[in-house]
């Protein structure tokens, strides 16, 4: 009799039919997504193979991109991509940091929700709008800044422009359509995105430490320096890198502004340049099979680079989020 009571009841829940169907359906959805997404990766790699096999390392060192003449490489294109993204990050980083700090630390509590919503809205503005703005409005105005930079900071190699900066009638066309202007527009685009990630992380800085700092007589800046920034370090780095990932892949705004030039050079203020994504946008139409393979190879390189940047960034952001919840 006692054995009857002590023997554990076998717990073997039978899965009802509805659940089996449900699991099957969602598993199929997951499988489909995996299939589509995986297919893209494999397809890109597979299509890029002929180009990579034919050109080998030359693909990474050759500047010009003329598939018909068997001169094919992404050295110049890749460098310009980095230049545009670099300019964008240099401009966007301090502004995004200040914006995030303002919203999380200085803004009046009433305004906060509105400002956060506005920031999200800014991040959703289509890139073609920024491109149009940069192309029509910004270019004729910003060339004066370009000229000023090259005139007084021209001793820095990347601010040099291949023209006489002191000439009385200066060549305006040398300063238009430059990686600098493209980077400037991309900066405006990625700024809200970076700021919104940073703000999210800043908002999670522990209240106890904030209050502790204030109680010890810290000023508001003291709280920021000793609590918010150390706790939000991961968010700052990660947010900037995620923004960098976007800047690398940005197409339309860059196509609208940059004039295609295939040179290996670092003069960001000078007219011309082409990024991987703008190369694809410019050349896909006239594509022969070999050219298409080359474009796909270039696209694959861009994707891989963005992937690395994004993965590292998400890891940093995720770690900073989990670590920020200290207990008191």
């Amino acid at each position: 009799m006692t054995t009857d009571v002590d023997r554990p009841r076998p717990v073997r829940p039978s899965v009802p039919l509805s659940d089996r169907v449900f699991r099957g359906v969602v598993r199929a959805a997951g499988g489909t997504v995996l299939l589509i997404m995986g297919a893209i990766g494999i397809f890109l790699a597979y299509q890029a193979i002929p180009t990579l096999r034919e050109f080998g390392w030359g693909f990474f060192t050759e500047a010009s991109f003329v598939p018909d003449r068997e001169e094919l490489g992404i050295a110049a294109v890749g460098l310009f991509t980095l230049q545009v993204a670099g300019v964008a990050i240099v401009i966007a980083f301090p502004l995004a940091l200040a914006t995030a700090l303002y919203i999380s630390e200085y803004a009046p509590a009433r305004l906060k929700r509105t400002l956060i919503a506005a920031l999200d809205l800014m991040a959703a503005i289509p890139s073609v709008v920024y491109g149009l703005f940069g192309f029509v409005f910004l270019t004729p105005h910003i060339i004066y800044l370009s000229r000023w930079l090259s005139k007084y900071l021209g001793f820095l190699p990347f601010f040099e422009v291949n023209t006489d900066v002191n000439a009385a009638s200066w060549e305006q066309s040398m300063y238009t359509s430059s990686p600098f202007i493209a980077g400037f527009v991309v900066a405006m685009m990625i700024l809200p995105f970076a700021a919104s990630i940073m703000r999210e992380v800043f908002a999670q800085a522990p209240l106890g430490e904030r209050e502790g700092a204030l109680a010890l007589g810290s000023t508001r800046w003291g709280v920021i320096r000793s609590v918010v920034l150390p706790f939000g370090k991961g968010g700052i780095i990660g947010g900037t890198m995620l923004a960098l990932g976007r800047a690398l892949g940005e197409t339309i705004a860059v196509v609208m502004i940059l004039a295609p030039v295939f040179d290996i050079r670092f003069r960001v203020l000078e007219n011309g340049g082409v990024t991987i994504s703008s190369l694809i946008a410019l050349r896909f139409g006239e594509a022969t099979p070999s050219q298409l393979s080359a474009l796909l190879a270039a696209g694959l390189m861009l994707f891989l680079f963005t992937l690395v940047v994004n993965t590292v960034a998400s890891m940093i952001v995720a770690r900073s989020r989990s670590g920020s919840a200290t207990e008191i």
Partner: peptide, 16 residues
């Protein structure tokens, strides 16, 4: 794979 693919530049999606 889903997380990796959020890094896919839109132009590459178009090219695919």
């Amino acid at each position: 794979v889903v997380e990796a693919m959020t890094a896919l530049p839109s132009i590459v999606a178009g090219l695919f």
